[in-house]
Amino acid sequence: MRPVERDVATRAAPSSAAVDRIATTFARLRAGNRAGFVPFIMAGDPDLDVTLDLLRAAAAAGADLIELGVPFSDPMADGPVNQRSAERALAGGTAMPAILEVVARFRATSEVPIILFGYANPFVQYGPERLARDARASGVDGLLCIDMPPEEADEVQPALDAAGIAMVFLLAPTSDAARRARVLARARGFVYYVSITGVTGAAAPDVAEVGTMVRMVRHETALPVGVGFGIRTPEHAAATARIADAVVVGSAVMQLVETHGGDDVVAAVGAFLGRMAEAVHGARHA
């Protein structure tokens, strides 16, 4: 089964520098028998200058990929922490062209892949072709559109494929085999497994249950499998790193941003990300 699925994934994936930055990262991680650490940072919270500092701090702390949140007024997959984060970002007028400028400034000094993480409407209103072109030019590597199922992905995926930007899709505990096959046929870059049936920052997932699902998904795709939603402690991150190819931590980061207004926010987030990266990278070697 596996070789066939690998062929499908290889054929589906567009060859380009942008996707290669994701693929190169996972190849490096695999060679070192390490899971990747993927922090989530909401663009524009508290403002885009700090966002750039946070991106650089994340890279310095050992982030292997970074999910950059594009704020949306009605973030239905997010818990209260990320909702408030998006509200703060939107109150400051955060919108697409300025977000991409931050990516470009980050990209000038770092090769850490950036995945835009957001909801369909801001992407759709920006325009799929324009989005793909501008995101590519700024150094974006992937895009995860939470409320765009594969059935609707034709609205943006062809443009992203052509620009070499990986469209990342979600799987959940409720995704059955037929659903997984449909999603995986569309998936690029890596697969994001939502570890709980809930919103971001909700209760911590059961690692054993997540492991069972991740093993199953791994037999169905050659793409790496990242796990996120609800992971907030180094212990939890390490346990997840033993079963997944990457560990995503989001609400815990934005919770720190919320509680550390002012100058020490970058230092506080950097220190937390350093501990989390260490836990993820060392998990399989402890």
């Binding site: 007024s73 009605d74 369909a120 409407n121 801001p122 992407f123 759709v124 209103q125 920006y126 765009m148």
Partner: peptide
């Protein structure tokens, strides 16, 4: 026309796609 709460329909939204 915008995408809001899981469907594409007419919505009240800003030019950047934020729901009003």
């Amino acid at each position: 026309v915008g995408v809001f709460q899981g469907s594409k329909s007419y919505v009240l939204e800003s030019e950047t796609g934020q729901i009003r």
